[in-house]
């Protein structure tokens, strides 16, 4: 499953983000208004793409025959990812880690 996730989903998202960045960058340089918006979208997609395989491993984790160390690691990563997404969209977070980050919106 992970191989397919990488091959199709991750690859597709990387290509999409590069295309958006290319078009957005050109439009922004020409002072076209929505150019920066397209750049933002491309950046967000690029930033969140590494989460996809991590989530895939989390879902797949019951197959990992391993110690508590793996489960604790997945928990730590999961908490960080949730914080990143919630902070990034300016929402109040359910699980608190003290980040000195202002809300994005």
């Amino acid at each position: 499953m992970l191989k397919k996730v990488y091959k199709f989903v991750v690859k597709g998202l990387v290509v999409l983000s590069l295309v958006l960045l290319a078009f957005g960058g050109v439009f922004a340089s020409l002072n076209v208004e929505f150019g920066y918006g397209v750049v933002y979208l491309g950046l967000w997609i690029l930033l969140l793409t590494p989460l996809i395989p991590v989530i895939a491993v989390l879902i797949d984790s019951y197959r990992i025959n391993d110690t508590a160390l793996v489960l604790i690691s997945l928990l730590v990563i999961g908490i960080i990812l949730i914080n990143m997404v919630y902070y990034g969209f300016g929402l109040s977070i359910p699980l608190s880690i003290p980040f000195p980050l202002p809300p994005l919106l």
Binding site: A28, T49, L101
Partner: peptide, 19 residues
């Protein structure tokens, strides 16, 4: 991605240069 995110939400990444 994690490090970039911190800079991104703190407005350090220049959107003109990023693409």
């Amino acid at each position: 991605a994690t490090g970039t995110f911190i800079y991104f939400v703190n407005g350090v990444i220049d959107m003109s240069y990023a693409p």
